[in-house]
Every structure is written in C-alpha cells, then in structure tokens.
C-alpha cells in the first residue's frame, strides 16, 4: 500500500504564493522574454522580418483603415499601437507556420464552409498570396497600388475583399483561396494585435486597454468583485510589468 504523500514542502510554497499580490510582484520586475523588456519600437523605424517592403506598405495602409488612428476620432489606431509589428512577429511564431494545424492532404476545397479551413496554406502563405492578389486587383481597377489610393478608395477595396467580390482565381490563385478568407485573417490579426498584451509586439503602451478600460494582466480582483456597477479605478498592467 502506498503511504499518504508528504505535502510539507508544498505547503510552505503555498503559504508564500497566496500572499502574492500580482500588481506588486510585477513591479518587482517579472520578465518573460528579454526582448519585451526593451521599450516598444517606433513603427517607422521597424525592420519587418517576414514581410518585404511592398507587402509592408500594404499592411501599414490596410491596418490604418481597419482601425484608424487618433485623427479619425477618439482612441488610438492600429498604427499608433504597432499592430503591423505584431503581425510581422506572428508570422514567425508557431501560428504563422501553422505548427499546430493538421496540414496533410488531400485538400478538399469544395466542401461546406461550415467544415472549416481547408487550404493547403499557412498564415504566412495566406498573407503573401492575399497581398499580391489584392495589389494586382488595385492595379487592374485603379491603376495604382493599394497604399497609393485615397482612404475612401482603400475602404472600397477592403469591402470588396470582405464581401468576396475580388476573384482571386482571376489573379492566378490555384487553390481557391478566397478574398474573404484573406480579409478575415487580416482583420482578426489586426484586432489581436490591437488588444493583446504588448509582449506580442502590438498594443503599444496598452493604449487600447486604456481606451476600453481593461486592466490587462492585473489578474487579482478579490477585493473588487463585490463592487457592483462601479467603474474600476486602476489602469492596466502588462505581462512585463509596464503600468498605464
């Protein structure tokens, strides 16, 4: 028969960990990655690791329309918060490489959309192909690249992508990648970069969290949970201990 385990060392550990008040311990300098300790870069000085110059110009312009900046109204925009940097970094993450996905063939491309993503493409592929075909469409429709168009025209291009009115097949797509699939990846990643912890490269200085009133990684509200219908008074903290 096995004896009852000895939990003494665990208890000692628990005594300490229950005392922990997260916001204080963050200020003590918890750090998850070295790079995140560096101040957030300026978008204008950032050298993308994945996107080439032309793709990068598209990404900057598209993000700016998807979540426009201060000039267009209250609150920061995608460019103010380094969203393109987030997307560039995601392309080199397991996500960008579809590391966790099932990517074995055969790829059946005529099934119901309710059965989910079936392309033989990683997110990296989707961006490269999607941007190239969108640029080809802009050239064909407007004789200019996307980033050269005025804001309203850019919006009509994005709307056409969203509504799947751009026929990628006519620009050389062979695996039935649809414009709406590209658009929805771009939009989802843009929102992620806007609202995720700054450790991932976007949400610079937690600006979007300040705008909506999300306290970030504080993760400790036992003293607050019974204060109903009262606005939470403290600003956000991030995973690396930045406070806003």
């Amino acid at each position: 028969m096995a004896s009852q385990p000895d939990n003494a060392s665990r208890r000692a550990f628990l005594r300490n960990s229950f005392m922990m008040i997260p916001a204080v311990s963050i200020a003590g300098g918890v750090s998850l990655t070295a790079e995140a300790d560096e101040p957030a870069p300026n978008l204008s000085e950032y050298q993308p690791a994945f996107f080439n110059d032309e793709e990068w110009s598209f990404l900057l312009a598209a993000c700016d329309r998807l979540i426009p900046g201060e000039a267009a109204g209250k609150g920061p925009g995608a460019l103010d918060t380094n969203v393109p940097i987030f997307i560039d970094r995601q392309m080199d993450s397991p996500y960008g490489h579809a590391d966790r996905w099932y990517m074995e063939g055969p790829f059946v491309l005529d099934g119901s959309p309710d059965l989910g993503f079936q392309y033989p493409y990683t997110p990296r592929d989707v961006y490269q192909k999607g941007i190239a075909m969108t640029q080809a469409y802009c050239q064909q429709q407007h004789g200019q690249r996307f980033e050269q168009l005025d804001g309203d025209t850019q919006d009509t291009v994005l709307q056409a992508l969203e509504a799947n009115e751009v026929d990628f097949a006519s620009f050389g797509e062979t695996q039935k990648l649809e414009a709406s699939e590209f658009f929805s990846s771009l939009l989802a990643n843009t929102k992620e970069g806007y609202l995720a912890d700054p450790i991932h490269g976007g949400n610079k200085h937690m600006a979007s969290w300040k705008m909506v009133g999300f306290p970030g990684a504080r993760a400790s509200y036992r003293d607050w949970v019974d204060q109903h219908n009262v606005e939470y008074p403290l600003g956000p903290v991030s995973l690396t201990g930045e406070r806003g």
Partner: peptide, 29 residues
C-alpha cells in the same frame, strides 16, 4: 503568475490544447 494572463497565447492560440497536427478529427453532418 503572470504567465497565464495572456489572452493571445491561451485564449486565442490554444497553446494548452490538442494539436490537430497530432490528432485531428474529421467531421461531417
């Protein structure tokens, strides 16, 4: 703390969950 307090990593990218690469399910209605 603070590792789990990361929506992108755990809430969105499913870092703790089954990898379809290792064990996908095929589905029909």
């Amino acid at each position: 703390y603070p590792k789990p307090a990361d929506e992108l990593q755990y809430g969105i990218r499913h870092t703790m969950m089954q990898k379809p690469k290792q064990a996908a399910v095929t589905i029909r209605r």
